[in-house]
Write a protein that binds this DNA or RNA. Structure first.
Lengths: 98, 98
DNA sequence: TACTCATATGTGTAAATACTCATATGTGTG
DNA sequence: CACACATATGAGTATTTACACATATGAGTA
């Protein structure tokens, strides 16, 4: 039940993940994914952000391993790498509501 | 099991929490708390940060509801507001390791 | 009251970061 | 090949943010 301290590397890498999630538009993009993969154009449409800006944030999310790209012709579909990620974020939200 | 979209306010407030956790020294402070309350001086000692800097970050954590201050004489002890917070962070860490 | 110790805060500064514009890359189709 | 569409990237700018220094507040004690 880990009341263990976190080591340097854990702090470093975990804080990076939180920093990525800490930008509202990125969190919006991520949560807009739900569990299905969606092309960038759909994300642009649903978030109302510019294409450039969506690409900018998708890069950050991708490099942090928080989304996974899948090429399909000229399209790139983005997905959550793992449904558990969504569960954890949901749990955070539920906790935060309290 | 919430594949619901997040509304604007949820995105806004939840991303604030993540942003706070996204700063390495803040995450270090928070995880150094474990489950017991500790005075600022102990946090300064264990993190190696300056007193000013610890106070600076504690304020951010406090305002985000991520730590809870308890006055005791001249000392201020800081605690997690809720043990579940630590569990969720731990779960994030475990997920991220994978 | 005067002094010490614990913590907080105001101001300034350097670094990080989100965003936009313009353009590049890459894919399918005529 | 030429063109249209989907996505990515480089450069520049404005805002945000972490940090240090000096100082303030506030509690305990002589």
């Amino acid at each position: 039940m880990s009341i263990n301290a976190y080591d340097k590397n854990e702090i470093k890498s975990l804080s990076k993940v939180f920093k990525i999630l800490g930008e509202p538009n990125r969190l919006k993009i991520l949560t807009s994914l739900g569990l299905e993969c969606r092309p960038v154009s759909a994300i642009v449409a649903s978030t109302g952000l510019t294409q450039t800006n969506v690409s900018f944030h998708l890069r950050a999310l991708r490099e942090a391993g928080l989304v996974k790209p899948e090429k399909n012709g000229a399209f790139v579909f983005y997905c959550l790498p793992d449904p558990e990620l969504r569960e954890i974020i949901d749990r955070f939200r539920d906790w935060h509501k309290t």
